[in-house]
Design a protein around this nucleic acid. Structure first.
Length: 107
DNA sequence: AAAGTGACTGACA
DNA sequence: GTGTCAGCCACTT
């Protein structure tokens, strides 16, 4: 059977995610543009990651447009700060423009 | 089938 | 800076 678009996108997204170096961040829209899908779909895939997948991928380096953390729980800010990325109390990545990383389209 | 919802984004007031 | 709207796509009820 044909897997859903999200399931099809998952491995590709995870692969792209590994291109984001430690201490840098990227956005849903940026990844979406590289993959040729909508940012919404990228978000859906991220939200559907299993525990194991989340452990093996730097999902915390993906933030919303403008450097705003859109994740629930606040675990992302903790992980980012641990690798040197400053996050304000308002869930904003400090120096976002400077830290933004744009992976090259795979293929 | 229809409506509601969400780890999104860009534009506008 | 905040609030609202429209476009987006898959999943759930």
């Amino acid at each position: 059977m044909r897997p859903s678009a999200a399931a099809r996108l998952k491995p590709r997204l995870l692969s792209l995610l590994h291109e984001v170096p430690r201490g840098r961040v990227t956005t849903y829209g940026t990844l979406a543009a590289c993959l040729g899908v909508s940012a919404r779909l990228v978000a859906r895939v991220m939200a559907s990651l299993s525990e194991a997948e989340a452990e093996g991928a730097p999902w915390h380096r993906v933030v919303g447009a403008g450097g705003v953390l859109r994740t629930a729980g606040g675990r992302q800010a903790e992980r980012l700060r641990r690798e040197g990325v400053g996050v304000s109390a308002r869930d904003r990545v400090e120096g976002f423009a400077r830290l933004l990383f744009t992976p090259s389209a795979e293929g």
